[in-house]
Nucleic acid binder design. Structure first.
Lengths: 218, 218
DNA sequence: TAAAAATTTTAGATTAGCCTAAATTTTTTA
DNA sequence: TAAAAAATTTAGGCTAATCTAAAATTTTTA
């Protein structure tokens, strides 16, 4: 059994190692977990002892296969709980992160499988992030940052890569919710801001920063 | 904010002080929480500092009003989660205790109120125990131990005072589930065992120990 | 009611997770 | 490529929650 803290470190390492296997540094972890580099070093040694990561002093850490499986199970729980909170209890998509952050540590495979079944085996969470199955396999859909597209491209919003309440509330207000269709009219060279046409022919402009965090299915 | 551990101590003290206000000893707590008396002493000092209990050295502890309110909220959460696990996810009544024991520490009033509403504001949990409202008020129904009744008495099962899986599974198997009507035929003076007539005129005999843990609405 | 038994508390350690400050290693830069 | 800067680790401490063993207090019993 791993402690809450250990689980949070595994999750952080997972999220920080973009492509499976890449090495993550002590400082990057300390920033995401909001702790000191010294504390991270301590924990990395411990996780390495438990064979959840491989760790080379002064170099960084990467998840072992066991570590990766553990991390994806926590992510599975987090995302299923988010679906429950939004679909079943009626929370808004910007309200669920912190609660799911607690619920993800509840320890019962049976519980999570029943929850999955009750929710109808959802494939994505309320932010469009894929929910891994009980073996840790993701159902990857190719997603494209709006900031990387050009005039004329179109697609539906399939996810967001930033989950802060302010950002999600902004999207909600602007009509940029999951599933919304959009058509790119223009990308301003000056600052990278993007003009879009939305469902009811509504036209809006978003900043490059916002465009980077909206992911499209083309 | 209280730690998980503190919450567990408060819950234990609550359950051990039969009638509100009665004093609970160090050893009794150490038995229910499965820890040493020395550890309990440490924690009692801490809870007293936080004004959650009143504590007199060598005498024992009792909940303050704040402590009582905190404890009932944990119990509220525990019981609502049990209802969710049984009614919504289809667990059996003997399978939910340990999971609810974890879920009860999740910290969100909004979550628990929405859950309550989703479940239809249940008044009792799957074992018949009353669910306090958000102000900590119980809807007490008068319950009678079968062991205290005499031949001729009858009623419905309104609760059980023992929640171990083996006991609950035994009741399930025997048909002694929540709501079942029963009629007391005879109480054996020799060993206190009780003969009952059940729904379909089925007649069974239960031990005094079992009879003590079944609670009837007369 | 005094001695024995039981209960409770104190003293002193231990472990997990965290911290600061100092030392070490790696990376950057001039 | 050597010095400066940045990153990382080590050393030494802290707190929460636990433990064992010893001391203090209360309760029981003869």
């Amino acid at each position: 059994m791993n402690s809450f803290t250990e689980e949070n470190y595994l999750k952080a390492i997972y999220h920080l190692s973009k492509d499976h296997g890449s090495v993550v540094t002590t400082n990057r972890i300390s920033e995401t977990i909001n702790t000191t580099a010294a504390s991270v070093t301590d924990m990395l040694k411990k996780l390495a002892d438990k064979n959840l990561i491989s760790y080379v002093k002064y170099q960084g850490a990467s998840l072992t296969e066991t570590g990766r499986r553990t991390a994806t199970q926590i992510i599975r729980k987090h995302r299923l709980w988010e679906v429950f909170l939004v679909d079943t209890l009626g929370f808004k998509w910007d309200e669920v992160h912190d609660i799911a952050e607690e619920l993800e540590h509840i320890n019962s495979t049976e519980l999570i499988n029943r929850l999955d079944s009750f929710l109808g085996f959802p494939k994505t969470d309320p932010h469009g992030d894929p929910i891994p199955d009980h073996e840790g396999n993701f159902n990857h859909k190719k997603l494209h940052q709006v900031s990387k597209l050009k005039a004329g491209d179109e697609g539906r919003i399939g996810g967001v890569s930033e989950h802060s309440p302010v950002f999600l509330q902004y999207l909600e207000k602007t009509g940029l919710t999951l599933g919304a269709s959009l058509h790119i009219k223009e990308v301003l060279e000056f600052d990278g801001s993007v003009s879009l046409k939305l469902d009811q022919n509504r036209e809006i402009t978003i900043s490059r920063e916002v465009a980077k965090n909206i992911l499209l299915i083309l």
